[in-house]
């Protein structure tokens, strides 16, 4: 139990002293994951809605493919991104390996399938409800998809939070493509991995606790918004 006390104490003293290095690592984590989330939402939400609404040949295969990607270990995704971005890889000329951009790319690949698969489920339910009405009003396909995303926005918020949680807590992919470089690509999770490998277990756990508090805060916000929406029957 001493272990937790020591870690809690370290976590608090890190936060209270506003440790500059911790702040840098923390904000890079947030920046990378939020950017990845934004891109993943722009891709995954319409894709999920499209798959929910349209029936076409190959749809089953595409959904199966997305579900497979969803179960892919982050380190494998990291490896694939590494092989592409490496100087000897096909996209090596862009010089993106070991940059925050590479980490964003890996996280986008990691969470887009999650957002697409989960939003597909949610939009399918809404589609049951709206289908006849939209057919009757001759709503064009792209308007329908945007309307589904808009009207399901509070339910989709959970999906977005799940995506963010996955992005911000993931270490396998970002450590491979980012390289855990000090002041450049070091984020919360890679710092935790580093501290663990240095045997600084209390410090690692302290950082983990900070990460947990962040996750808690984000989820509380999401829950708050959702409860408000439920009260107004928008979900």
């Amino acid at each position: 139990m001493d272990f937790y006390c020591e870690s809690l104490y370290q976590a608090f003293s890190l936060i209270i002293s506003a440790d500059a290095e911790l702040a840098e690592v923390f904000w890079l984590s947030v920046k990378v994951s939020l950017t990845a989330l934004l891109i993943a939402c722009a891709l995954g939400l319409p894709l999920g809605a499209f798959l929910a609404v349209h029936r076409f040949s190959g749809r089953g295969m595409l959904i199966g493919f997305i579900n497979t990607l969803m179960g892919m270990p982050p380190v494998v995704i990291g490896l694939i991104v590494y092989l592409h971005l490496s100087r000897s890889g096909p996209l090596g000329w862009m010089g993106l390996l070991y940059t925050p951009t590479a980490m964003i790319i890996a996280q986008v690949i990691l969470i887009t399938p999650i957002i697409a698969a989960l939003s597909c489920q949610i939009v399918e339910d809404l589609h049951e409800d709206y289908r006849d009405l939209f057919a009757s009003l001759c709503v064009p396909s792209h308007v329908a998809i945007l309307s589904y995303i808009y009207d399901a926005r509070y339910s989709l918020l959970t999906v977005v939070l799940a995506g963010f949680g996955r992005a911000v807590s993931e270490v396998g992919a970002v450590i491979v493509v980012g390289g855990n470089i000090d002041h450049l690509t070091r984020v919360m999770t890679t710092t935790i991995a580093l501290e663990t490998s240095k045997g600084e277990l209390e410090m690692a756990l302290a950082l983990g606790l900070i990460l947990m508090v962040k996750a808690l805060f984000i989820n509380a916000c999401g829950q708050r918004i959702k409860t408000t929406a439920q009260a107004k029957a928008y979900v």
Partner: peptide
């Protein structure tokens, strides 16, 4: 070494 051989 492998990474360096990949020019990374």
């Amino acid at each position: 070494i492998k990474n360096a051989m990949n020019c990374d």
